[in-house]
Simulated assay, not measured.
Amino acid sequence: MGDKGYDSDALVQTIEARGMEAVIPPRSNRTELRKVDWFVYKERHLIECFFNKIKHYRRIFSRYEKTARNDIGMLRFVSALIWLR
Score class of each variant (00 low, 15 high):
70 N>T: 13
18 R>H: 14
82 I>K: 04
38 W>C: 08
74 M>L: 12
67 T>Y: 02
21 E>T: 14
74 M>A: 08
1 M>G: 13
31 T>K: 15
53 K>S: 04
37 D>C: 11
64 Y>W: 08
43 E>S: 10
19 G>K: 06
5 G>P: 00
39 F>M: 05
49 C>F: 04
59 R>G: 06
51 F>I: 07
45 H>M: 07
17 A>H: 14
65 E>R: 04
73 G>L: 02
40 V>A: 14
61 F>S: 07
72 I>S: 02
79 S>E: 00
45 H>K: 05
65 E>C: 09
38 W>K: 15
35 K>C: 09
40 V>N: 04
65 E>V: 06
30 R>Q: 00
22 A>S: 15
40 V>L: 12
70 N>K: 11
7 D>R: 06
66 K>I: 03
12 V>M: 01
69 R>H: 05
67 T>K: 05
38 W>L: 06
13 Q>S: 12
29 N>K: 08
31 T>A: 14
41 Y>L: 09
63 R>V: 06
60 I>K: 01
20 M>R: 12
77 F>N: 12
64 Y>P: 05
40 V>W: 12
6 Y>D: 05
54 I>W: 01
34 R>V: 08
59 R>P: 00
79 S>M: 10
53 K>R: 15
58 R>M: 04
35 K>I: 11
80 A>Y: 12
71 D>G: 01
58 R>N: 00
73 G>M: 02
81 L>K: 11
39 F>P: 02
16 E>S: 07
1 M>C: 11
75 L>S: 00
53 K>M: 11
19 G>A: 07
70 N>C: 05
20 M>S: 12
28 S>G: 12
64 Y>T: 01
22 A>H: 13
43 E>H: 11
46 L>N: 14
40 V>H: 10
34 R>Q: 10
22 A>G: 13
62 S>Q: 11
33 L>M: 13
79 S>W: 00
69 R>N: 05
57 Y>K: 00
7 D>Q: 02
21 E>W: 04
4 K>S: 14
74 M>S: 03
9 D>N: 07
47 I>G: 03
62 S>N: 04
60 I>G: 01
78 V>D: 09
75 L>A: 10
74 M>T: 07
35 K>N: 10
11 L>R: 15
61 F>C: 14
69 R>A: 09
25 P>R: 13
41 Y>H: 15
82 I>H: 04
30 R>A: 02
56 H>T: 08
62 S>P: 02
35 K>A: 13
44 R>D: 00
83 W>E: 01
32 E>F: 03
52 N>C: 15
56 H>P: 01
65 E>D: 15
50 F>K: 05
8 S>N: 02
45 H>C: 02
40 V>I: 14
53 K>Q: 15
25 P>I: 13
26 P>W: 07
39 F>D: 14
76 R>I: 09
65 E>L: 02
81 L>P: 01
40 V>T: 12
16 E>N: 14
84 L>M: 13
66 K>R: 06
19 G>H: 12
1 M>D: 08
37 D>Y: 12
21 E>D: 10
20 M>I: 12
12 V>K: 03
25 P>D: 12
75 L>Y: 00
43 E>K: 14
4 K>C: 09
12 V>I: 15
35 K>S: 13
20 M>Q: 09
